[in-house]
């Protein structure tokens, strides 16, 4: 079970070489296959996640949630997807049409790119980048541009307000997010995610870096635009924020991208702080799924408990609390490493 997927990949490459393909071409085709698998995983994940969020939120509120379509309402998302596919596609006449139309595509592409570097098991990733963590952070911050495009292109006050809010929010929270990961990088001494996972062989980084874990969790919630930081959408205030003017599938792409981001960020959290794919008994790819879903459930729990924070508090919290705390954490980590080396422990 453990090497199921890696063995499959090796067999596929071997088979292609026997067909007469050069190893370079075989690698390229394998990469394509990996991409297709990633997209399938994302789609499946989202169908399950949206259903799960509806179910979990219902349980928090003593309701039942979708339960009529299929067992436990599992096909509810499929019906929604079919409906969204067949909705009329409205582009407002005043909109900046090119920007309006490309924004959702840009958003989802950026979200899918995040999956390139996440190790989904032992030796299972699309590309084993030596700057994986840096790639992830930089790709994640690109989604800001997509939201700004959506807000600007819609030519709607709600959209623009939502977009401006989200830009301010995401840029502010990008910094503590990156800083909180720096502590881990300092300990493991690598930006490669596989190396970071390997470094957690003995002890998870959540124990060595509890402050970084907490700041990462808060900053990630803000990065994902999830409650209590769901400023860009903020249904009760901005009616739909940056997505106000979008209909049907274009709107669904934003929605999909948000959930894609959610999975990616949770997977990174599991990788960096919770030991990644490492775990006893079960195969490595199952461990990362379990950990990721555990983190996602906590995200749900937080969202369905807390009220929405106010914009100016949100900003001041980032700059006055999270940034100093994460900087302090880096200092503390550095001091700790120096102390260890001085004592000769590592």
């Amino acid at each position: 079970m453990e090497h199921l997927f890696t063995n499959l990949a090796t067999a596929l490459t071997g088979w292609m070489i026997t067909l007469g393909l050069s190893p370079v071409w075989a690698d390229v085709i394998l990469l394509l296959v990996k991409w297709i698998i990633i997209i399938t995983i994302i789609t499946l994940n989202i169908i399950i996640l949206i259903w799960l969020e509806r179910k979990v939120s219902a349980f928090f509120q003593e309701r039942l949630g979708p339960n009529r379509l299929g067992p436990f309402g599992i096909f509810q998302t499929i019906a929604d997807a079919i409906k969204l596919l067949t909705k009329e596609d409205i582009v407002p006449s005043a909109a900046d049409k090119l920007i309006f139309k490309t924004a959702p595509m840009f958003f989802i592409v950026v979200a899918v790119m995040l999956y390139t570097v996440i190790p989904m098991g032992q030796g299972m990733e699309v590309i084993n980048l030596n700057i994986g963590l840096l790639f992830f952070i930089s790709m994640g911050s690109l989604s800001t541009i997509a939201l700004l495009m959506a807000g600007w292109g819609s030519d709607n006050k709600w959209s623009l307000m939502g977009a401006v809010r989200s830009v301010a929010q995401m840029i502010s929270y990008e910094i503590p997010l990156a800083f909180s990961l720096l502590g881990v990088v300092m300990i493991s001494g690598s930006l490669n995610l596989q190396d970071i996972v390997a470094a957690q062989d003995n002890i998870w980084f959540v124990i060595l870096q509890p402050i970084a874990f907490l700041t990462y969790f808060i900053a990630a919630t803000a990065e994902l635009n999830r409650g209590p930081f769901d400023m860009p959408e903020a249904e009760q205030e901005l009616t739909g924020g940056a997505y106000t003017e979008y209909t049907g599938m274009r709107w669904a792409l934003f929605f999909l991208a948000e959930y894609t981001n959610l999975v990616a960020v949770s997977a990174l959290m599991a990788t960096v702080f919770l030991g990644g794919w490492q775990g006893p008994w079960l195969p490595s790819w199952l461990w990362i799924i379990i950990k990721t879903y555990g983190v996602i459930l906590v995200f749900f729990w937080v969202k369905w408990t807390f009220p929405r924070i106010r914009m100016d508090h949100l900003m001041s919290f980032s700059w006055k609390v999270l940034v100093p705390v994460s900087l302090g954490n880096i200092l503390l980590t550095g001091a700790g490493i120096y102390f260890c080396q001085w004592m000769g422990w590592c």
């Binding site: 509806r54 219902a58 979708p66 009529r68 309402g73 409205i90 249904e235 009616t239 739909g240 106000t244």
Partner: peptide, 13 residues
């Protein structure tokens, strides 16, 4: 939500 009709939208779009 049992019927899947709980996604109340604030936007007509």
């Amino acid at each position: 939500a049992r019927f899947g009709y709980e996604v109340v939208r604030a936007v007509p779009r």
